[in-house]
Design a protein around this nucleic acid. Structure first.
Ligand SMILES: Nc1ccn([C@H]2C[C@H](O)[C@@H](COP(=O)(O)OP(=O)(O)OP(=O)(O)O)O2)c(=O)n1
Ligand SMILES: [Mg+2]
Length: 696
DNA sequence: ATCCTCCCCTAC
DNA sequence: TAAGGTAGGGGAGGAT
């Protein structure tokens, strides 16, 4: 209840917002408190492992078990599991678990119905052994793996890469910055003298192009027999059933007629459209199609803004006669048909005086059509008839606020003043909405983009038991971040840790397999003295954040790391080397730890402990401690701890303390204390111990 | 006023 | 089973 209580003490409005949001979660039926607040205990001490397809489905069984005081294990383990639940098991599994209690799902259902713990006798899964032979080579490998490996796969080495290679949202998100680079390349190829600058949208003819049901369209290129049918792209196999919580990435317009939408669970879509056909992802093809789309656009004009892999704005004011609408229509027709014949997908387009109107017009043109809304008069007429939901940037929450005031259409706001809207929505949003409702868009066409942050985040399949496991996973994430930062040639100096934590009343296992379920979001950030793109430095900072929070590792359902306050990494100043004239002469301009491969941490390029001690000695004798230098020392000590060279950590700290004690300067003593505290925290977390600085 | 931190919201 | 990411805008509330 933490979050709800704290919000109740805030304002009523916020409470309602939060509550609505939680009820909106796709899985509202996963709470397990009884209405009277008591919890059934008939499964107390029961710990089940559900395997294979069951009837009822595993999500239902989990809910029943949890509601009745039992627990559900995601991985089989002889020590933790009391009951294996299965509807059907191949013989080799029966054999593998012959000494364990294997029951049918009916046991759980019946116990729940009777509200008492029935004998398992009648529910033992029995399966006659017959000719199974080698039906299982592949399955067996999987089983053996999940049995021997009862640790969650979250911490596994390949988890991050494996997840990302299958994540549509990852591909979707990362494609944008790739396409910005591609557009820049195309601009210099087709328009060598063009210098990118953002453009005001005064005197513009903006075209918004958007491929129709992009992912589906691509799939249909190689499956022409599916044209005209309800089709969707999803990971779930076609034979999976109505209880699938796989998300639909994109669905055809035939499926939309039934109410199916992008982002919907397959199971729900099947309820609306039982005949929907599923096809798999083809990430490589999307990539090629996007590149070709942008090639065609940039070939026409350099004024192209990347929106997403299937969507862009372009300003064609220099290519058409602004007063000749027929000419504009023809130009866009040609453009669309060129795209269609080149990549095989139909495209829709909207044309207007700015991005806002063009974007809204595309909706009118879809699918496979176009709509011009350019003259002052048609803009006013069109916009005022539009639902507020359709305004870009105005989504569910904002719309809800406006609906509470009885506003539904853009036209409904025309009598409201800027001040009134600002009171309701905040100063910026209020003003934006005020102008949007009048068809006015004060944004620029973005042709020169500057990245402000870079982040990695996984909120799927995250199950950790200990801080140590969290640390391992974070190290993998930071490696990924390190790669991306180096590829993008940026470094940054604000490190933010983002976590999802299971909400107080949310079921331990959400209804969606390995999903995050209902969560509270937590974020915490720390500034670092020098911009870095070194994953191991970031990791140590992130661990100090982890350290400073009170976390229940098993409740963590999502983990991310974001870097902001970015700089161009080629301009990175190696600050220690500059300021360290006070510390030591002649040290090299080398970052402390440049890669994860080094097995011995470096301090200013020195691995040799004697050299390091000399540098530290000089530093400790310098007049004044600089924070940048303190950070470097702290980072080095973190590295030592990570590589388990605790002896040298101890030696170095005692060495520093000896020098500083003699000096007796308060600032330096403070530095030493904070450094020591840092070290103790990390040793506590990583090695579960305390460093003794006294004897030895 | 302006900044900062910790969020929430939105879009694809 | 399933692969619920990512970047940017901006608001609330406190510190400066
Ligand atoms: N919730 C979502 C929304 C979109 N996408 C992916 C699949 C879409 O094909 C692509 C482009 O998104 P659009 O919003 O443009 O949707 P479509 O292109 O599928 O349909 P439309 O014809 O409405 O543009 O992004 C996704 O994976 N999940
Ligand atoms: Mg589209």
């Amino acid at each position: 209840m933490k979050s709800l209580v704290s919000v109740i003490m805030g304002s009523h409005k916020d409470y309602m917002t939060l509550k609505r949001q939680k009820l909106d979660e796709q899985n509202t039926n996963q709470r397990f408190l009884l209405e009277d607040g008591k919890v059934s205990q008939i499964f107390k001490g029961v710990s089940v492992y559900i395997t294979g397809f069951t009837d009822p489905p595993s999500a239902v069984l989990k809910e029943i078990v949890l509601r009745n005081g039992g627990s559900v294990q995601m991985f089989f383990s002889k020590t933790h599991v009391t009951h294996i639940v299965a509807s059907n098991l191949p013989d080799f599994k029966v054999k593998l678990w012959k000494n364990d209690m294997i029951v049918t799902p009916l046991w759980i259902v019946d116990c729940d119905a009777a509200q008492s713990r029935l004998s398992e006798a009648k529910y033992i899964l029995y399966r006659t052994s017959e000719n199974i032979k080698d039906m299982m080579t592949k399955n067996e490998v999987n089983i053996v793996k999940s049995v021997s490996k009862n640790i969650p796969e979250t911490t596994s080495k390949d988890f991050v890469g494996e997840f990302y290679s299958n994540s549509r949202l990852h591909h979707l998100s990362t494609s944008v910055s790739e396409l910005r680079h591609e557009v820049s390349r195309l601009q210099s190829q087709y328009h060598p003298s063009y210098m990118p600058t953002n453009r005001k949208q005064t005197a513009s003819v903006i075209v918004h192009v958007d491929i129709d049901c992009f992912f589906v369209s691509i799939s249909l290129c190689s499956r022409p027999h599916l044209r005209g049918k309800p089709v969707c792209v999803t990971h779930a196999k076609p034979n999976d059933k109505l209880d699938s919580y796989a998300e639909i990435s994109s669905c055809s317009y035939e499926a939309r007629k039934f109410g199916v939408q992008n982002g919907m669970f397959l199971g729900n879509a099947l309820k609306l459209c039982p005949n929907i056909i599923t096809v798999p992802y083809e990430f490589e093809s999307y990539h090629k199609a996007s590149n070709e789309l942008y090639r065609i656009l940039v070939e026409k004009t350099p004024y192209v803004e990347v929106v997403s892999c299937d969507e862009a704005f372009m300003d064609i004011v220099e290519l058409v006669d602004i007063s000749d609408e027929t000419l504009i229509q023809e130009f866009v027709q040609d453009l669309r048909s060129q795209i269609h014949s080149s990549i095989g997908c139909t495209v829709s387009a909207g044309i207007g005086p700015n991005k806002l109107v063009a974007r809204m017009a595309t909706r009118q043109g879809k699918p496979n059509g176009q709509y011009v809304c350019y003259s002052e008069e048609s803009v006013q007429d069109y916009i005022k008839s539009q639902p507020l939901q359709n305004l870009p940037g105005i989504g569910r929450a904002t719309c809800h606020k406006l609906e509470l005031q009885n506003f539904k259409l853009c036209g409904d706001l025309l009598l409201k003043s800027k001040a009134e809207l600002s009171d309701l929505l905040g100063p910026k949003t209020g003003e934006t909405v005020y102008y949007y409702c009048r068809g006015i868009d004060l944004r620029d066409l973005i042709l020169k983009h500057e990245r402000k942050s870079i982040s990695v985040e996984i909120n799927y399949g995250i199950r950790v038991e200990t801080i140590k496991e969290l640390e391992t996973f974070l190290l993998n994430l930071c490696k990924e971040l390190d790669n991306r930062m180096k590829a993008e040639k940026v470094s940054g100096s604000l490190v933010t840790l983002k976590l999802k934590e299971r909400s107080e009343n949310a079921a331990v296992e959400p209804i969606k397999y390995m999903g995050h379920g209902i969560c509270d979001n937590i974020s915490k950030s720390v500034n670092i003295a020098n911009a870095t793109n070194d994953g191991s430095v970031i990791h140590s900072k992130v661990m100090s954040l982890v350290n400073s929070m009170t976390l229940i590792p098993r409740d963590i359902r999502g983990i991310g790391v974001q870097i902001s306050k970015l700089k161009d990494s080629s301009l990175d100043q190696k600050n220690f080397a500059n300021t360290n004239k006070k510390i030591s002469k002649g040290s090299k301009d080398v970052p402390i730890c440049t890669s994860f491969q080094c097995s011995v941490p470096e301090f200013l390029g020195h691995k040799n402990t004697g050299d390091v001690k000399n540098i530290i000695k000089n530093w400790c004798e310098s007049p004044e401690p600089y924070q940048v230098d303190v950070d470097k020392v702290d980072e080095y000590l973190s590295q030592l701890i990570k590589y388990q060279n605790i002896n040298f950590v101890q030696e170095l700290l005692k060495f520093m303390r000896k020098i500083l004690k003699e000096r007796g300067v308060p600032e330096w003593n403070a530095v030493f204390n904070s450094t020591l505290q840092n070290v103790q925290r990390q040793i506590h977390v990583i090695l579960n111990g305390i460093l003794n600085l006294e004897d030895l």
